[in-house]
Structures are given as structure tokens and as C-alpha cells.
Amino acid sequence: MKTKSLTLAAAATLAMIGAAEARDQIRIVGSSTVFPFSTAVAEQFGKSSSFSTPVVESTGTGGGMKLFCSGVGEDHPDVTNASRRMKKSEFENCAKKGIGITEVKIGFDGIVIANAKKGPDLDLSLEQLFLALAKEIPQGGKLIANPNKMWSDIDPSLPKTKIEVLGPPPTSGTRDAFVEIAMEGGCKTLAGAKELGLKKKACHAVREDGSFIEAGENDNLIVQKLEANPAAFGIFGFSFLDQNSDKVKGASIAGTPPEFEEIAAGNYPISRSLFFYVKQQHVGVIPGIKEFVTEFTSENAWGEDGYLVDKGLIPLPDADRAAMATQAQGLAPLSM
């Protein structure tokens, strides 16, 4: 008897499959760097409006773009977060599925090179950073595998410790931004690099001989590892440095320390913009998208005294913010 009733119940569950109800929650996917900001806005939005709280998944920028561009309809996410600008190829993929996009730039994030509080203070130029982490560097008129083992091999003024840098894997947006800004930036100014074919993409290759260690997407873990190993450096977003300022400190880049004011003013060289993208076809279909965008772009959230700044976001300059807010709330279409 019991088995019979259980079987019936199972059949009923299976029958529910066809009858999944319409979605009333905004679904957000994308970058783990934007995740803390996106979740904070989602929570605030859920509390202060009559809409349900959006569901935020942290899938990484690339993974988010894939899900976002997979189609129109309630099975697909409405918003994707990105710690870099949408690539042309991704935009085209989206366009192929007939997806109209609104781009919203929400602020900046500095990428910091940090080490434990008890470790040495470091001031690196982008060039030195490139020489420390590149797979191949120019020497004596040709490209050779990176021979630098100690920081002092690059410049005698740097500490005599082994180069040991923990960083994010290639799937991460932080890694993309780091190689584009820091590695490419250092490579550009390096004498003789261009003639040997080291430009743009060729500068992005990171050494694989153990000096650069891929530490996974979990920035908390990198902070813990740095604490345990004062000789090592880690690459992660500014918000983690901000939250763990009692454990780790950031190295200055070209004389500029990774501090809030310096990044906001654009003086700190390794900073990137953070974005989110809205699927226009879902506006008005999934309730609350327009209101969510309004909440995200309100002064209360992304302003200089907003709650996102408490979470570690570095806001856009005042004028840009006002312009971006109008553009976002008007759902201006993105074209590339």
C-alpha cells in the first residue's frame, strides 16, 4: 500500500515538470568580482520594493556571457555581470540570438599585488611586473624563456626572495584584466620587445614554470595562503584587500599605492571597469528589471556614500555617473 501511494506521489511530481510556473524573479549570472556588489543591490532591491529578490549566481564573466547569450525567454538569465567589457565575439553571439543589450558601467576595481603584512614593502613598475611573470622576455636581441628566479634578478633594489605569485586562472575576468593592463602595459614600454613580435596578445603569456601559481577563483583562499607564506604575492581585486587590511597589504605600482582615492582618481595603473549587461527583450516580461537597474544606478547604491562603496566598489566620477545613470535607465542599446 505504502509503495503504491509513494509511486503515485512520484508520478505527481513528474507531472509537475510540464507545469513550471512563469518566473517572477530576476536572474543574474556572471563575474565573481561583481558578485558582492550585485548581491548587495539585489538584497536592497528585494527589501525596498514589492518585487522578489533577484537570484544571483557567480559563474565567472565568461560563463555568464555564455548563459546570457544563449537565448531570449525565461529559461535564460536577464542580467550578466562582467569584470571586463563584453567582447565583440560575445556581442555577435548575442546578436545572433536576437538579444538586445544595454551596457551599464558601474565603477572600478583595482587589481592589487598584495603580500602578508609581515612581508617586504614593494614598489613595482609594470615593466618589472612583466619581467617577473612573462613566459618569454627579450634579452640580448632575442626572446628567451623567462630566466628570472628572484625579484632581485630583475632589479637589484627589489628583495632577494623567490618570485612566487598566486593568481587567478585564465577563466577569471581578473586574470583577463591583469594580463591586458599590467602585462601588456609593461611589455609596451620594454625596450626591444616590439621588434621581437611582443605586442598585444603575445604579451599575455604568463610563465608556467612554477613562479606563477594558479590559485583558483577563491580570493579568500589566496589571502589565507599569503598569510601563511610571507614570501608570496597574490593577485586579486581591491575589495578583498579592503576587507582584509589587517592581514595583507598591497604593493605600490609605479609609485602609486592601491588606495581608494588613487584608484578612483585613475592614478593607480592596474584598474578596470566593472559592468553589467541587461537583456532588453526581458524588460517588461520579467517584472522589476527596470526598477533593479534604477536601484543599481541610484546615488544611494553606487554614489560616493552609497552602500556599494562600503562593499569595496570604487565609484565612477560624478559626471560619468550621472550620464551613465540616464543611459542605463533609458535602456540605451549597446552597439559594437
Partner: peptide, 11 residues
């Protein structure tokens, strides 16, 4: 995922 609302059903 980050989910604030208490789920009310199987879907």
C-alpha cells in the same frame, strides 16, 4: 547562488 527569499515551492 545568492538567494534571499525563502522558497515557497518546488520550482
Amino acid at each position: 547562488a545568492f538567494i534571499v527569499d525563502i522558497p515557497r515551492g518546488f520550482t
